[in-house]
Amino acid sequence: MVNRSNHTEEAIWQLLETVKDPEVPVLSVVDLGIVRKVIIEDENTISIAVTPTYSGCPAMDVIRMQLRILLLENGFKQVNIQQVLSPAWTTDWMSEKGKEQLKAYGIAPPLPKQTVCHPDAFQEEEAIQCPHCLSYHTRLVSRFGSTACKALYQCLDCKEPFDYFKCH
């Protein structure tokens, strides 16, 4: 709970850390990099700019609602949540802490080298590390996975399948 006197921007960013991506519940919306701006207009009014990871991400509606409820609970009377599309979200905006949390959860974090996706077919890609046994001996099973932001891989050493937060 943030009380009226500490409606500072820093306190709000800390508060927003408690809102998780419902599809990857270890990752906060701040670590995911989708909260782009926090503006405290006055003691009753706050504006937040969020950007979707993917145009059709079904978690966005839930996230927007969670943000609104959280800020209303914390004393704001008017909460403006604005969607911005430009600049477009990139996996580069995910925090280092977020990447560590993803890995601990069993999802291979995005590779810094693959934030810009290339359209060429069968292009040679950097090896993705297995989040379970840390082997680089892995293979792509499918370019698409359980949610819009992931691809499916398999480890050739421990044989476990795992999700990879794909280039975007």
């Binding site: 145009s55 477009a88 996706c117 290339h118 359209p119 370019r143």
Partner: peptide, 12 residues
């Protein structure tokens, strides 16, 4: 700008 990133992946 947003959509072209998704389209790039579909193209691949």
């Amino acid at each position: 700008e947003k959509s072209v990133k998704e389209v790039t992946y579909h193209l691949k």
